[in-house]
Simulated assay, not measured.
Amino acid sequence: MSQPLVSIICLCYNHERFLREALDSVLTQTYPNLEVIIVDDCSTDNSVSIIRKYVQQYPQLKFISTGQNLGNTRAFNIGWRASQGQFILDFATDDVLLPGRVAQQVAQFQRLGPAYGVVYSDAEYISDASEHLYFHSQRYKAAPDGDVFAEVLGRYFICPPTMLMRREVFEKLHGYDEALAYEDFDFWIRSARQYKYAYLPEVTTKRRLHNHSLSGNLYKKGNQLLASTVVVCRRAAEMVQTPQEHAALARRLKYEARHAYLTANFTEAEQLLQLLKQTTGTPFLYSLIRQLSKRRINLGFLRSLYYRLRNR
């Protein structure tokens, strides 16, 4: 069976501490037909110097500098549009690929039909010091296959850096939406409406958790990521078709509205609750939250108390 070209888009922004481990994990992939493109989004640390040394030592690596800080969505789009691979891997250079990652996922794609656009897998979460924290599958038990639109709309279960994607998915979607502050949720919604997903029950990736990761900042007060969530939820409301999908959207809106309100992101909370009202109606609890949000009454201590009790 032929071995299709896989493009690994290595996205770097101030990853000096992790960059060598990340690039070494790309270079030790067992899959032979790789195109590796490193995109640096105008790092201010020593990342570019490290990248140049790798490119000098490994001429097969391609290096693109954005010239100015563009953010994840725009920087990644530059990388995949410069690539040629039949499959695309979005790789942040603070994470680590296990050696068989690409080979395993390509093999799964080759067992699937063209209706499948994404293969995702289990992952190990690691600390700044590369110490084991937990496995993704320990916290998110169910990993569905096939039509996952309602699932990705209603809850989080995909570890983003584990995805390998068909090139045609990006071409049909015109890449990530560059107007958004982050890409995952929007990509899932738009791609899952048109393509099936497949789960590989293997740990293929180490995902690093640290203070500067986007996911860790999503619900901080005043963070612009929530504004993007509102946009994606509005977009999803135009896509839902079945009662199951409407219920999943309502579940997502309730979850996001609660967190927005309890982190004092009152504007986004009101927008999400207004969309909930238009979608399925507003239960009493969420009507109360909306009134509290309008009056800017901050009950954020309840969220902090919950997480303290949960993490004991």
Rank of each mutant, 00 (worst) to 15 (best):
17 R>W: 05
29 Q>W: 00
116 Y>G: 04
271 Q>S: 14
128 D>A: 14
273 L>P: 07
34 L>V: 06
298 N>E: 13
163 M>Y: 00
157 F>M: 05
128 D>I: 12
235 R>A: 12
71 G>E: 04
173 L>V: 03
96 V>C: 11
51 I>F: 01
157 F>N: 08
257 A>R: 05
306 Y>V: 07
186 D>T: 02
74 R>T: 09
278 Q>E: 15
181 A>C: 12
147 D>C: 01
227 A>K: 15
70 L>G: 07
172 K>D: 01
279 T>H: 12
268 E>S: 11
95 D>Y: 05
285 L>F: 14
36 V>L: 11
100 G>Q: 13
282 T>R: 13
241 Q>V: 11
154 G>K: 08
160 P>S: 10
308 R>L: 09
184 D>K: 03
268 E>W: 08
171 E>A: 05
252 R>V: 01
75 A>K: 08
36 V>E: 07
17 R>A: 14
30 T>M: 00
249 L>Q: 02
193 R>M: 00
39 V>Q: 01
190 R>W: 00
96 V>I: 15
147 D>A: 02
231 V>S: 09
38 I>C: 11
102 V>K: 10
180 L>N: 05
163 M>G: 06
303 R>F: 15
301 F>P: 03
192 A>W: 04
302 L>N: 00
207 R>A: 14
108 Q>S: 10
126 I>Q: 04
163 M>W: 00
263 T>Y: 04
153 L>D: 03
243 P>R: 01
179 A>H: 07
192 A>V: 07
200 L>G: 06
205 T>L: 13
288 L>F: 13
277 K>F: 02
220 K>C: 12
40 D>K: 02
128 D>H: 12
255 Y>N: 13
253 L>I: 05
150 A>V: 06
2 S>H: 09
99 P>Q: 09
291 Q>G: 13
201 P>Q: 08
274 Q>P: 11
153 L>E: 00
169 V>L: 00
169 V>E: 02
268 E>I: 05
190 R>F: 01
11 L>G: 07
128 D>Y: 11
219 Y>W: 14
184 D>N: 11
145 D>R: 01
152 V>W: 05
244 Q>C: 01
160 P>T: 11
46 N>A: 15
253 L>P: 12
288 L>K: 08
211 N>C: 11
22 A>Y: 02
153 L>I: 10
271 Q>F: 08
298 N>R: 12
160 P>H: 03
115 A>S: 09
85 G>T: 10
14 N>T: 03
142 A>Y: 13
